[in-house]
Amino acid sequence: MKKFAIASGVAAIGVAASLLAATFSLAQDNPAEQSAPLKPAAEFQSITDAKQRSWALFEEAGKVIQHPRCVNCHPATERPLQTMAMHPHQPPVVRGEGGMGMPGMTCNTCHGAANVDVVGQAETLKSIPGNAAWHLAPIEMAWQGKTLGEICRQIKDPERNGGKTLAEITEHMAHDSLVGWGWQPGAGREPVPGSQAVFGELIAAWVESGAACQ
């Protein structure tokens, strides 16, 4: 996992591999830069059974939660992912302390306070993402490879959600700026569906209706 060019026994092959991987990673998403739609919470009022309504609301919110843009920074290993294809981050970086990367190459070596448009590059590479709070979710908040039901239970579990109450989860989803980056991911990246306001209302309605998970 943590073996890469610098650790390779066959250095020349390692370099070739890392250059290849770097080249591969340079292409950003296919430019479906429009958000997919997200149904507002009000549209779920007609479901009379509270439990069913609650899960339906979370399923809709799941279109955001399980979008690669979100899962890429909730990886199941030490390594973040990139692009809609969710391949391992290039250059090879790891979580490090507080999800900030390793000393000598912390996340802010490349990721600044805002997205940065690159200049003089190919059409397939438009920007480097950034946010003032840029970091990786801790391993107990890993979403990669989990079903939506598993993620749902995980989000409610204070042991695995950073000790948050459901009210704090609602606030976080609706207003956190790094969560909000998903809708403003920079040129060349597909945003998550809908808007943070609609997403926040879905989570609030899910909590109000009993925060059901499947």
Binding site: K2, A5, I6, S8, G14, P91, V93, G101, G104, M105
Partner: peptide, 18 residues
């Protein structure tokens, strides 16, 4: 070695002086 990997993995060397 792991600390060195962590800090240096983003610095490529086409001459492979790693």
């Amino acid at each position: 070695d792991a600390d060195i990997d962590g800090a240096m993995a983003g610095n490529l060397c086409r001459c492979a002086t790693y």
